[in-house]
């Protein structure tokens, strides 16, 4: 959109992040770079610092040291609404206090684009319609969010991110609570958006196979350190996975897609 984007090919640039809570260090010296249209998967065991890294990139959490730049500008230099027009986040869990309709939730994605007393315009409705359509939610438009299943709710929040029209999306465990079909669907949708809108996506994932299948790059974290960072083929090796997860695995290829496939192999000898 801006000429700045062409110049700063890397949309997100994170350098030497050190962060923690109290005296506990959660991240020590993590650096990443994400280009427009790219999907970066952050993987690692529980407590590796994945969510903290995501929260720092969304501006919700301040690191002890290190920098986060979006489009070549420090994240701290963005106003709150300006940041919201460029960057959207889906948290791992989404609870809604009142019975808003699905459409109302998706329309909330338009909030950073609207003035204080403005109601959503016909264009905002079209954007919401498109977002609902993409996630197969049109027939649920007027249902209360509180009546939906965890998986449906997750899709509603992804549709909300879409309506927000960000350049960057940060997804914390987007496939949690989703069944096989919807997991495939949301990653396919996400890939489409990376391609059609040049959106940069960073997702934390537990599912290593989803990471290898859909991500352009993978960051493997353990105890706040980057064990490996690169293409799925470089990162998701049997040695790396064994070291990080402390469990035996079998690493092969998915015969249907050719992507790396990882299976647990308890009791196997290295």
């Amino acid at each position: 959109m801006k000429p700045a984007m062409a110049i700063h090919d890397s949309v997100i640039k994170v350098r030497n992040l050190v962060a923690g809570y109290g005296s506990l260090t959660v991240l020590s010296g993590v650096s990443i770079e994400v280009r427009a249209g790219e999907l970066l998967a952050i993987v690692g065991p529980n407590g590796a610092g994945k969510s903290t890294l995501l929260r720092i990139m969304s501006g919700a959490f301040k690191p002890w040291s290190g920098t986060v730049e979006l489009f070549g500008r420090s994240i701290a230099a963005y106003g709150k609404r300006e940041l919201a027009r460029n960057l959207a986040t889906v948290a791992q869990e989404n609870s809604v206090a009142f019975g808003f309709t699905v459409l109302e939730i998706v329309l909330m994605g338009r909030a950073p684009h609207l003035g204080p007393f403005h109601l959503e315009s016909a264009r905002d409705l079209e954007i919401a319609y498109d977002a609902l359509d993409r996630f197969g939610l049109l027939r649920l438009s007027s249902r209360s969010i509180q009546e939906l299943s965890g998986g449906e709710r997750k899709r509603v929040f992804l549709a909300r991110v879409l309506a927000q029209e960000p350049k960057i999306a940060l997804l914390d465990e987007p496939s949690a609570f989703l069944d096989l079909r919807h997991t495939a669907e949301i990653f396919t949708r996400t890939r489409e958006l990376c391609a059609s809108r040049a959106m940069a996506v960073v997702a934390t994932l537990h599912d290593l196979n989803a990471a290898s299948e859909y991500a352009d790059a993978v960051l493997l974290l353990k105890d706040g350190r980057a064990v490996a960072y690169g293409s799925p083929e470089q990162v998701l090796t049997a040695d790396n996975v064994r070291e990080v997860y402390e469990t035996e695995v079998y690493v092969g290829r998915n015969p249907a897609t050719g992507a790396i496939a990882i299976l647990p192999a308890p009791g196997a000898r290295p």
């Binding site: 459409l103 016909a122 319609y129 498109d130 669907e185 059609s196």
Partner: peptide, 29 residues
């Protein structure tokens, strides 16, 4: 659901505002 990676409804969608109003009747303010 049919998945078509080249499909971008953002540009192809051209709904009449009347159709939108009908689809979303009562679902928003």
């Amino acid at each position: 659901m049919k998945i078509d990676p080249a499909h971008d409804p953002g540009s192809s969608i051209a709904l009449e505002s009347g159709a939108l109003t009908a689809a979303f009747a009562g679902a928003h303010l």
